[in-house]
Design a protein around this nucleic acid. Structure first.
Length: 643
DNA sequence: ATAGGGTTAG
């Protein structure tokens, strides 16, 4: 006979008397299923199975113990609960719960906490809460488990409410509690209050709390505060580095994100998947293809990481290199809805709408269900290729085919689609029948649609709506004023200007970036600080002259076209993308693709200029604006002159 | 026994 630990014996003797006993162990009994067990060996077996994580046998033993009204020690039960959790065995977990409560008094607090945590992890928040309410003495762990559960379920009010209740009961929160509750902050006010408490009780040096603070400050756009929390860190921690880098990357502050990444490497930290994902995102935002390629080399170490591959796909698409994107896509063993959506939207944004729709068909064949975002990409593809009927079909059947209700973004694509097709009336009807309130982005789609077919009245209405919803939108003021000027409504035009001045709103100057020899060169309208500016201007004038010889006429009709704004006619020729383009011609070897990114949408004249240069100089030119991509080759653009 | 970082549109 095996020896039983004294702990186990002590637990047993408080229980009802055992039955008649044979000495056989459950292992040999399993096939006979005869419950005439010696309690000590039964508990022994149970303990053994639990430690071995042999859930079926452990449960079998548990049922026998239950019938015989025998209980084991707490440690063994905790092993069993862990085992249920690991196997996601919900029913078994519930049986353990029943068993633990069948012996007349409450299980120990730590077992109760484990059960609560188990229910939380199974997504059974209500069961967790019931158990929590039953506990006579809830400790910091019970509270934290519930708070963390509410925070993950995005029940932010509940999480914050529980923090208050907990304090009222006199239980002191620890770093676990704060790092959980921070994620439930639903406003800066809450965040600042929590941050105060955290500093006051000295928990701000905990790395978990620190990374949570950084995440939440970043989520609310308070990057200075995030950085302050980061810079107070003395010890150094990989996750905290990742938090701050992703904070900047997600707020479109790619430069800062990349700078921090360099600092991180200098500090001796090794970039893992989350780091690389954020760095890729920064490259995506800045259109840094070459840096992106270098990051790709490091990504190879995590060959089949889905999220990382998705980020890589997006980077290549947004940097205009669909060959690279496709190569990654084909090599991916696992593809999820994000992979497909990224690729579909990427093709569409680069002007390859037909390919995007073909890919959408393959996606359906592959059995991955399209999401809300997938359909945005599909409709975007239709609108940019003028595929009106296809677009209308997908729009009207998306609910039935994919179970997705059309949202703002879908309406935006459809307004764009109808507007381009000259069906402005229908676009207006559509905006009127939207179930959700149109936002500034929706109205901007309508305003943009007016550009193509000069719907002045609709444009004025749309612009007014945009300014009502987003009074800071400088571009719309300029555009509205230009529309009035063009309609000879001088007083209205002047009034828009005045409103703009009164509110202190200034138009962001046009800016273009180009990468040459691993250096980013920026060209800003009206800024002459680039060292080669005079050479560039001489070359630009030569080119314009040469083009005019073959029939190029600078397109000065940019009332509804030029989103770069209020430049005088002659400054058209100094639009930043022209300067960047000429600089590219001068500094990149013959035959190499010229890639330019700009902050505002390209104007009609620059678009024409790029097409002609592409032909005359035999270059592929890719210009990315905030919305889409223009691949110029041999006198044509992939956007088909719609953008 | 309780806590952390990453991907798609607009």
């Amino acid at each position: 006979m095996r020896t039983i630990s004294s702990k186990v014996v002590k637990k047993c003797i408080t229980r009802p008397p055992p039955l008649l006993l044979s000495n056989t162990s459950l292992t040999s009994m399993a096939s006979f299923n005869v419950p005439n067990q010696n309690p000590s060996s039964l508990i022994d077996d149970f303990t053994k199975f639990c430690c071995q994580r042999d859930l079926p046998r452990a449960m079998q033993a548990l049922e026998l113990m239950h019938t015989h009204r025998i209980w084991a020690d707490c440690i063994t039960y905790s092993e069993l609960i862990k085992c249920c959790l690991a196997r996601r065995a919900i029913e078994q977990g519930k049986r353990v719960h029943v068993h633990l409560f069948s012996n007349g008094h409450e299980p120990k607090a730590f077992l109760m906490n484990m059960l609560i945590n188990m229910y939380v992890k199974f997504g059974l928040l209500k069961d967790a809460r019931d158990l929590f309410d039953k506990m006579p003495e809830r400790n910091v762990i019970s509270w934290t488990t519930m708070i963390s559960a509410y925070a993950s379920a995005k029940l932010n009010d509940k999480a914050l409410e529980f923090l208050v209740l907990m304090l009222r009961e006199g239980v002191r929160p620890n770093m676990f509690t704060y790092s959980s509750v921070l994620r439930a902050c639903d406003g800066l006010f809450n965040l600042r209050q929590l941050h105060c408490c955290i500093i006051k009780i000295g928990l701000d040096s905990d790395v978990f709390v620190r990374s949570a603070l950084i995440d939440v400050y970043s989520r609310w756009g308070e990057l200075e505060n995030a950085l302050r929390v980061f810079d107070e860190m003395m010890t150094g921690d990989l996750v905290v580095w990742n938090s701050i880098i992703s904070g900047f990357a997600q707020n479109s502050e790619g430069d800062e994100a990349l700078g921090l990444f360099k600092r991180m490497k200098r500090a001796g930290f090794l970039a893992k998947q989350p780091t690389l994902t954020s760095v890729l995102r920064a490259c995506t935002g800045l259109a840094l293809l070459e840096l992106g390629r270098q990051v790709h080399v490091h990504v190879l170490k995590y060959d089949q990481d889905l999220i990382l591959n998705n980020a890589l796909l997006d980077m290549y698409c947004k940097c205009g290199s669909l060959e690279d994107a496709n190569a990654v896509f084909v090599r991916m063993v696992e593809k999820d809805v994000i992979s497909w959506s990224t690729m579909i939207a990427g093709l569409a944004q680069n002007g390859y709408s037909k390919e995007a729709l073909k890919l959408f068909e393959s996606m359906k064949v592959s059995g991955i269900r399209p999401s809300y975002i997938t359909i945005v990409g599909v409709l975007f593809a239709c609108s940019h290729a003028g595929l009106v009927e296809e677009g209308l079909y997908y729009f009207h059947s998306m609910k039935e085919l994919f179970g997705i209700d059309p949202g703002r973004e879908h309406y935006g694509c459809m307004i764009d689609l109808l507007g381009r097709a000259g069906r402005l009336r229908e676009a207006v009807d559509l905006i009127n029948e939207m179930e959700c309130e149109p936002d500034a982005v929706t109205w901007r789609a309508l305003l943009n649609a007016c550009r193509v077919h000069q719907g002045v009245d609709v444009a004025i209405h749309a612009a007014k709506q945009i300014l009502r919803l987003d009074p800071q939108d400088a571009g719309t003021y300029v555009l509205l004023s230009n529309i009035y000027a063009n309609a000879r409504r001088w007083n209205d035009a002047a009034e828009v200007r005045r409103a703009m001045d009164n509110r202190g709103i200034r138009k962001e100057p046009g800016c273009s970036w180009i990468e040459v020899n691993k250096q980013i060169h920026a060209f800003i309208l009206g800024d002459k600080s680039h060292p080669q500016v005079s050479g560039i201007n001489i070359r630009l004038n030569q080119l314009i002259h040469k083009l005019m010889g073959v029939g190029y006429v600078p397109d000065t009709n940019f009332v509804l076209q030029d989103l770069e704004g209020e430049q005088m006619q002659e400054s058209l020729r100094y639009h930043s993308e022209k300067l960047a383009l000429v600089f590219g011609l001068m500094s990149l070897p013959k035959g190499q693709t010229i890639r330019i990114r700009k902050n505002l949408r390209i104007c009609g004249d620059c678009h024409l200029f790029a097409k002609l240069i592409a032909k005359m100089e035999q270059r592929i030119i890719i210009i990315r604006d905030p919305v889409r991509y223009h691949h110029f080759q041999d006198g044509f653009c992939s956007c088909g002159d719609f953008w």
